[in-house]
Amino acid sequence: MVDVIFLILSVSAVAASVIALQARELIYGAVALGVALLATAGLFVLLDAPFVAMFQVTVYIGAVVVLILFTIMLVKREQWIGGSYEGINPCLSVIGGIMVVAGLMYAGWASGLVTINASEEFGITFLQIGRDMMSGYAPALILAAITLAAALIGALTMAKVEKEG
């Protein structure tokens, strides 16, 4: 059963990622990106990480995809179409992507990942995340908060329409 769910989720994540990059209309691409992120959230649930899955859904699908949709709406419609927007030779870039995958797979195979299977229960709850973030990672949490605030203020300042004269 878990195998079937894993297969469905991973195939839909990969397919939706391809659609996100190849869809003719940019807006369908944004929706497909949302589907890919949702499928990854499902994979997080399979990995016993429900909190990360929830965070992924709220932050990515709730904020990032909506932000992307608004940006697409603000950009002119002629700019959405991806047909003439291929960069350097698409074949070369496909080969580049496949080479990256092959290299990663070789690294995974060479380091013996095949032998590692999930057998035992994952006895750690997400309460531990809260404890970690509030104790050991408190400085990192504060830094992340400051970074987020600075990035959002910067984005607002940049995107603000300045009145002429």
Binding site: S93, G96, V100, L104
Partner: peptide, 13 residues
Amino acid sequence: LFGIGVYGVIAKR
């Protein structure tokens, strides 16, 4: 997924 992302960064304008 990483390979698809790399392809997108290289190929898209």
